[in-house]
């Protein structure tokens, strides 16, 4: 990327399939706009980046409970509306296929292909008891300063 390229940053705070999908569609669009794109994942948004497989880790009791109760990965997220105990996500995935839109895991793959920088917030990882081994490979790790560093030059900064 050249120095003139513009920046977009997105904070994904929510851990809902629909909101994560919106965030990744904007990220992919911004990358196609030749923007440098940073996505910063905090709180429930971190679950989007979890590996599907269980990872053996050393954790305390509370962290273990949190880990078990939160969705493991993009495919497992619920909907922010009309979740209906998991029926909603099945329905939306059906509609996504019908309209040839990309499902969330593929949007994430595409974002990585397009060079979108994915940053996991280390402070909230600690709070939720998530360890680096449990998250996708190739992420960056940082805090609010890392985010603000990018957001200060960002023309588009979103909190989802």
């Amino acid at each position: 990327m050249d120095e003139k390229s513009q920046k977009t940053t997105i904070v994904l705070f929510s851990g809902d399939y629909d909101k994560a999908m919106a965030a990744f569609i904007i990220a992919n669009g911004a990358a196609a706009y030749e923007h440098e794109v940073t996505m910063f994942f905090t709180f429930w948004g971190l679950n989007t980046l979890r590996k599907e497989a269980a990872v053996r880790t050393k954790k305390g009791f509370l962290e273990r409970i949190f880990g078990a109760m939160m969705p493991r990965g993009a495919e497992k997220l619920g909907l922010s509306k009309l979740n209906m105990a998991g029926m909603g996500p099945q329905m939306i995935k059906h509609v996504i296929r019908k309209h040839k839109a990309l499902p969330l895991p593929q949007l994430i793959e595409l974002a990585r292909e397009q060079g979108v920088k994915l940053v996991a917030c280390t402070m909230t990882m600690d709070l939720l008891g998530l360890q680096q081994e449990e998250l996708l490979d190739g992420l960056e790790y940082g805090g609010v300063a890392a985010y603000l560093g990018d957001a200060s030059d960002g023309k588009v900064n979103l909190f989802i």
Partner: peptide, 14 residues
């Protein structure tokens, strides 16, 4: 054709 947002501009950019 047939692809939904954001694929048209992603493909065009590629």
């Amino acid at each position: 054709k047939g692809l939904a947002c954001p694929m048209p501009i992603v493909k065009a950019r590629k």
